[in-house]
Simulated scan of single mutants.
Amino acid sequence: MLKRNIFLLMVFMVLISCNQSKTSEVTQADDNWKKQFDQRLPLLGHRNWIVIADKAFPEQNAAGMEVINTNENSLTVLKYVLQQVNSSGHVKPIIYRDKELEFITEAQAKGVESFRTESEKLLNIGKTLESKPQTILHDSVFAKLDQASRLFKIVVLKTNETIPYSSVFVQLDCSYWNAEKEKQLRAKMNNQK
């Protein structure tokens, strides 16, 4: 009887561990989302993504995607993420926004005008972005995320925002190396052949 109970317990433990190895990891909402994000940021680099997602952002089956439920409003999360990324020293943000957001009216989504105004202020804090945020169609952003998630980590910070197309997509780039330096390096290498 004891052997049977031990066997059943072992089978149960294996089933639980298999069930927990989902393709995308979801961290429950709590007061520690900032701490969780701060622990991940030093590990993120060139070609990783951070998504400040609205409430309806879908959980994905992408292996490289991790979801952290912030239980905060979008602007609070956006401000914190930009401050942390801009002060990280190793990465800089390339911002994408949904083109659809520009066309939503206040009658369609209460608070959208205020959201656009406040988010624009945050995205232009101290002119810390090298380039203006890019607006592209929502499906185009998802295509970029799908491609990136095959090789690189994507951290999704899910918010309580209920304004459609309000997610902000941050592609990380190297802050201490740029396209011009890369071009010079490749030219030098080609000249050595």
Rank of each mutant, 00 (worst) to 15 (best):
T70K: 04
L78E: 11
M65D: 06
I6H: 00
Q39M: 14
M10I: 11
N86F: 02
E59Y: 14
S24I: 08
K79M: 02
L9I: 02
Q83I: 03
P58I: 01
D38Q: 01
S74V: 05
N48F: 04
G45D: 12
N5V: 07
G89Q: 08
K3M: 08
R40D: 11
S74L: 12
V91F: 01
Q84W: 02
L8W: 14
L75S: 09
Q60S: 09
K79A: 11
H46E: 10
L8S: 12
A29E: 11
R4I: 11
W33M: 02
C18I: 14
K22T: 15
H46I: 08
L2Y: 06
C18N: 09
L15S: 10
R4W: 05
L43R: 10
L82W: 04
L15Q: 03
I16H: 07
W49H: 03
T76N: 11
N32L: 12
G64K: 05
I6V: 09
V77S: 00
Q60W: 07
M65G: 04
E72Q: 11
V11T: 10
N61S: 06
Q60F: 03
T27E: 15
N48P: 06
V77I: 01
E25D: 15
Q84E: 07
N73P: 09
L8E: 14
T76H: 08
D30R: 06
E72W: 01
N69E: 11
L43F: 12
E66W: 09
P42E: 07
L78V: 13
P58D: 02
N19D: 13
L44P: 09
D31F: 02
A53D: 07
K35Q: 10
I16V: 14
E66H: 14
E59I: 15
L2Q: 10
L41M: 05
Q83K: 02
D30P: 08
A63I: 14
P42T: 05
T27F: 14
K79V: 04
I50K: 00
N86V: 04
L82Q: 08
F7R: 06
V91P: 04
M65F: 10
W49Y: 07
T70P: 02
H90Q: 05
I52L: 03
S17W: 13
S17V: 10
M65I: 09
N61L: 12
Q20V: 13
